[in-house]
Nucleic acid binder design. Structure first.
Length: 634
RNA sequence: GGCCCCGUAGCUCAGCUGGAUAGAGCAAUUCACUUCUAAUGAAUAGGUCUUUGGUUCGAAUCCAAACGGGGUCACCA
């Protein structure tokens, strides 16, 4: 409708305004609720052109458009805004059109280029936590949204399965695991612990032992004991100690941190971990076996968690297989002059012309850094998938700078696809008690949280749900669907870019702007439809009139395809969430005030049911894009 | 300190490609279940959109600065 009127105005621009107006000037918007009308044209931009009052200008345009478009029933100019009332027939015809489309709102499958979406990127030394939940739900939802927009999508995760941090948990397990009566160390099998939890436990143990050892060392230094330590260490310690003199609290704290780091580097534990990493890199069979075994425990654990989360991946990348990539590319770039070498042999890129700094891409000993790897993997992926057009990295916003640099490097290296790479940057999840910190034990475990949320849903649903005749399995599925729906919706309804507050009590709340609120509306519609099975709801409606609320609902349904487009453009599932909430609220208002099944006029009743069918269709479709399932009853 | 992000009701968030009287949910108060699922709906109250200046017919929205909060500036990943 909007498009149609815009075209008419452009086509007859000369006739109306005496010159060809620019498209930008024509601004349509939704009519405000308090005002009568369905569509509004802003008149201010035309006032100057027509050299008359807004009222006259609006009247002139309104009269003209009404002649051109028969769906306009009337128009009115209010303080510079031209409001059109569109005929009920128009809206009903829209409803009928929506009714015919099974996948309403979705673009044609595979009509747009192939995109890779990376999300999750866990470390294999600890279990997934709340931050991963936001990351995963977000990455999954964006993938689904892109698919709905016609893209083909490859969902991937990078598994950070190597490095010193992995060796830490391996070492701790070897050193500190108690032996059972059979002389075995702890395993998922003999403890019943989930693999990722068991490995995570030893990562924590490493940290504790490591800190304790460092503390002992510092205590020794403080009492002047430097046996087993080099002269350099002694000098450095004394230098730091003396520097504390007369400094404020903050500076002293910083110096204490430096002393701690100094001591940490002297611990036997860190040395042993480093030795283990070197052995791993040399593919020492024993270390490799340990590494494989423990990683497999973690993968088994992750599988369970991912399944509960309802996310999946099409392709896995392991850092252990890709961490050497990128070096050749850097050397090639060095020849091309993209990078430069410093005297010590380290390789850098100078981004000062782009307003950034110099960035290291290869250490002086020739080994790779994080950036090197990322350059290599990006290129590797485009080699793996020749049809690949772009890539989206779902990574926290603390890495904004890293990705800015990465994309810039790839661009400078001459990769045309670099401009199609983007960082889906999301904000941190805060708790009411503050930031999540693993060291302070304030990390919210993903499995625990999901369990808690499902337990709460179980309790609430047993209390007020409509569960008659459901088997225990069906009931459990429902509890799960409600609990997980609530959690996902809670994490996705907020703009991903922004940091968000996670209130555990609110996440399992069932009233207001929540997942269960939307699910409930869906179930209620399904209940109506079950009771009206005798009617032919496939058929289009012949109804001629609609109530205001009904018109509002149809207007929202009409918006759905553009909402999906916007969500893809913004890479924001929150757009979908907020739209669905609006739709559901409007429908509930309708449901509460207008008779549906008990309506006596059969044609009206049929229309209201057809409308309900389509509201349920859109709710279910929109929630599917968020990874949220909707129940038939609850 | 340099750079990046954020600041809207008591709390959590929408709105931000400039447009009419800034919207929801939670919390508070009130009303509506012999009527289609009340996990609902209706209503009341709650705002100098951090501040100041600028651009404009018009600014929560754009620009600049200040203040406040966070992130980042490793030969860590």
């Amino acid at each position: 409708m909007e498009q149609n009127l815009k075209e008419i105005l452009l086509k007859h621009s000369n006739e109306l305004f005496g010159l060809q107006v620019e498209e930008q000037l024509i601004q349509f918007q939704k009519t405000r609720k308090e005002v009568e009308g369905d569509l509004t044209l802003v008149i201010f931009p035309f006032v100057k052109l027509l050299r008359c009052s807004p009222l006259e200008a609006g009247d002139k345009i309104g009269r003209f458009l009404m002649k051109q478009n028969s769906s306009i029933e009337k128009y009115e100019v209010v303080s510079g805004f031209l409001n059109f009332v569109i005929s009920p027939e128009f809206w009903i015809s829209k409803l009928n059109a929506i009714h015919q489309e099974a996948t309403y709102g979705y673009a044609k499958e595979n009509s747009k280029p192939l995109i890779m979406v990376e999300y999750s990127s866990p470390n294999t030394n600890k279990p997934l936590h709340l931050g991963h939940l936001r990351n995963n739900f977000l990455g999954y939802a964006v993938s689904e949204i892109l698919k709905a927009n016609g893209h083909s999508v490859i969902k991937t995760q990078v598994i950070n399965d190597r490095g010193i941090h992995i060796c830490k948990s391996m070492l701790a397990w070897e050193k500190f695991s108690p032996l059972n009566e059979k002389g075995e160390r702890e395993t998922p099998q003999n403890t019943g612990l989930k693999g990722d939890k068991l490995v995570g436990k030893y990562y924590v143990i490493f940290d504790q032992q490591f800190n304790a050892e460092a503390k002992t060392i510092i205590t020794g230094w403080e009492s002047g004991d430097f046996t087993h330590f080099s002269e350099d260490i002694k000098t450095e310690f004394n230098r730091l100690e003396e520097a504390k003199e007369g400094k404020d609290e903050k500076a002293v704290k910083g110096l204490d941190e430096k002393i701690k780091d100094l001591a940490k580097n002297q611990t036997t534990l860190i040395r042993e971990a480093k030795d283990m990493l070197i052995k791993w890199e040399a593919r020492d069979p024993q270390v490799y076996l340990l590494w494989t075994t423990m990683n497999n425990w973690v993968y088994a654990g992750f599988d369970v968690t991912y399944k509960a989360m309802g996310v999946d991946f099409d392709k896995l990348y392991y850092e252990s297989e890709t961490f050497l990539l990128g070096k050749d590319i850097v050397l090639e770039g060095l020849k091309k002059g993209v990078f430069f070498k410093k005297d010590d042999g380290s390789v850098w890129i100078d981004l000062t012309a782009d307003g950034l700094d110099e960035k290291l891409v290869l250490r002086s000993d020739g080994t790779a850094v994080y950036m090197t790897q990322d350059i290599g993997t990006a290129i590797d992926r485009f080699n793996d998938y020749p049809a690949l057009n772009g890539m989206i990295y779902t990574v926290g916003n603390e890495q904004d700078y890293h990705f800015k640099v990465l994309f810039l490097i790839l661009e400078k290296m001459g990769y045309a696809w670099a401009k199609n790479c983007s960082h889906l940057s999301y904000g941190m999840v805060d708790l009411p008690t503050g930031k999540m910190k693993s060291r302070e034990g304030t990390v919210v475990d993903a499995d625990d949280l999901m369990q808690e949320v499902v337990d709460k849903a179980t309790e609430m649903t047993r209390e007020r749900g409509h569960l008659e005749g459901m088997s225990e399995n069906e009931k459990n599925d429902l509890f799960n669907l409600i609990g997980m729906g609530g959690l996902k919706y809670y994490l996705l309804k907020v703009d991903p870019k922004k940091r968000m507050m996670f209130n555990p009590d609110e996440s399992i709340e069932l009233n207001g702007n929540t997942g269960p609120f939307i699910q409930y509306t869906h179930a209620r519609i399904k209940s109506l439809l079950t009771k009206s099975a005798a009617l032919n709801l496939e058929q289009a409606t012949d109804c001629k009139n609609i109530e205001d609320v009904e018109k509002e609902i149809i207007k929202l349904l009409v918006e759905y395809p553009s909402i999906i487009e916007e969500a893809a453009k913004e890479q924001s599932p929150a757009v979908i969430a907020n739209y669905t909430y609006e739709l559901v609220k409007t429908y509930n208002n309708f449901y509460q005030t207008i008779p549906i099944l008990i309506e006596e006029n059969e044609i009206t009743k049929h229309m209201r049911l057809v409308m309900s069918v389509n509201v349920a269709k859109v709710i279910s479709s929109a929630m599917r894009l968020l990874g949220v399932k909707v129940p038939e009853r609850m």
